[in-house]
Amino acid sequence: MENIVTLLLPVIVIQFLLLIIALISCIRAEETLGPKWVWIVIIFCISIIGPILYFVIGQRKDAYK
């Protein structure tokens, strides 16, 4: 059992990192495409794919603010 945990540790760490970065970037963003709370729910509830979805289609990137 310990074997499984040590092997999966990098995967869990990366997944957690992805979640945290997506959350921080979502909360700090002035505006997202669509309601912000929906994105927070998506990032939390769908593992791996949720953060990717946010990064790819959720961010609103206006060059001039």
Partner: peptide
């Protein structure tokens, strides 16, 4: 960096590649 592509892209590709050997190893379990 600003849109965090510098972070999420390597992380996602790393996850995709890492899960394959690990899941194959634990397949019997």
């Amino acid at each position: 960096w600003r849109e965090k592509k510098l972070v999420w892209l390597p992380a996602v590709i790393l996850l995709v590649t890492l899960l394959q050997p690990i899941s194959l190893y634990f397949m019997p379990t």
